[in-house]
Amino acid sequence: MKTCLIVDDSSVIRKVARRILEGLEFTIEEAEDGEQALAACQRKLPEAILLDWNMPKMDGYEFLRVLRRLPGGDGPKVVFCTTENDVAHIARALHAGANEYIMKPFDKEIVEAKFQEVGLI
């Protein structure tokens, strides 16, 4: 089973995302901000990361930049999942190494489509 790290400061979003991704046969880990996410990745790199942008401590964009410089850090497929829904943000995220981008609000269909897009399912 593949592991997906869900990074979001909202426990409600983490819960919704967890339910969807467990339905897609992922083992779930959770982090509330970029720092926690980085700690989790230093312990063990997941196959997938669902990543919010705006979070306290370290935001999603900053986390992604650090992640991609870790040894093996180019491995996980990173799918942003954020309310930052404008072209400028999307372009920055892709430039920093994001594989896909979900604009909130999202549902199961969208998560499934995007995870398929990057070859995770």
Partner: peptide, 9 residues
Amino acid sequence: FEVQRGLPI
């Protein structure tokens, strides 16, 4: 919603 179903980013 429509652009997120099937269209790569």
